[in-house]
């Protein structure tokens, strides 16, 4: 079942005489319980796509659907009911003056038991709830923001380069956590990253973007083994791994 989809999304920024088109006729579909990877380099439009899907920015044209119902033009105040975002800047996703507990309680009226359950699920302990973001590690902070998203009962998680500021070992843990909660909580995930290897490890499907255009789209195995665009091939060649 398709939970989130977009049709013919376009976005253009005009800055004096220069114009940038980070989205050009982009279509996407996210199925229930699926992890969709969006891969591209800087300027590919992958982050803009995530902003448009979340309602933080409005597309110039094109339509967005949640469970078949159009939500184009709705701001994050409304889309937050069915989707949540995890940001690259884990520390910046929490008010520096608020304790974790206050931040987690902000959008949900869940009981303390439920909060503790979710905290446990993301691999954290109760003792961290009283802390402010700067007294957590980057990995702990990112787990907290996943906990916050889970507490709001949104069915979709939009992840924007959520591990690129983390160490390799922490990254591996956060990615593992994403896969676990996908299975346990039956949520669907969009994972935006520049790291094709990372995306290939956990995503069911991959979309490759370049200059605002989707150049490749399909099952992970297919995109990796028989890429349909030259750019994907170039990306695959550039992957430096061990």
């Amino acid at each position: 079942m398709t939970i989130l989809s977009g049709k013919d999304l376009n976005k253009e920024y005009v800055n004096r005489d220069r114009s940038v088109r980070p989205l050009q006729h982009v279509d996407f579909e996210l199925n229930q319980g699926e992890i969709l990877g969006i891969v591209g380099e800087s300027g590919s439009g992958k982050s803009t796509l995530l902003k448009v899907i979340s309602g933080i920015e409005k597309p110039d044209s094109g339509k967005l659907y949640h469970m078949g119902k159009e939500y184009t033009g709705q701001g994050p105040e409304k889309t937050g009911k069915f989707l949540q975002m995890i940001f690259q800047d884990a520390y910046g996703s929490f008010d520096p003056r608020m304790s974790m507990e206050r931040s987690l309680k902000e959008g949900s009226d869940e009981s303390r038991e439920e909060i503790l359950r979710v905290i446990g699920e993301v691999g954290l302990t109760e003792g961290l709830l009283g802390r402010r973001p700067r007294h957590l590690s980057g990995g702990q902070c990112q787990r907290m923001s996943i906990a916050r998203a889970l507490l709001s009962h949104a069915g979709v998680l939009l992840c924007d380069e959520i591990t690129s500021a983390l160490d390799v070992t922490t990254q591996a843990q956060v990615i593992k956590l994403l896969m676990e909660i996908r299975d346990k909580e039956r949520i669907s995930i969009v994972l935006v990253s520049h790291d094709l290897a990372l995306v290939s490890m956990i995503c069911d499907r991959i979309m490759v973007m370049k200059d605002g255009i989707v150049v490749d789209n399909g099952e992970t195995a297919k995109v990796i083994s028989e890429p349909s665009s030259d750019y994907t091939r170039k990306l695959l060649e550039s992957v430096i791994t061990v």
Binding site: P76, E77, K78, G80, Q84, M85
Partner: peptide, 14 residues
């Protein structure tokens, strides 16, 4: 434009 402001909006805050 800090993420925590966006996060608060996604939590439905006016």
């Amino acid at each position: 434009n800090e993420p925590y402001i966006t996060a608060a909006r996604l939590q439905g805050k006016s």
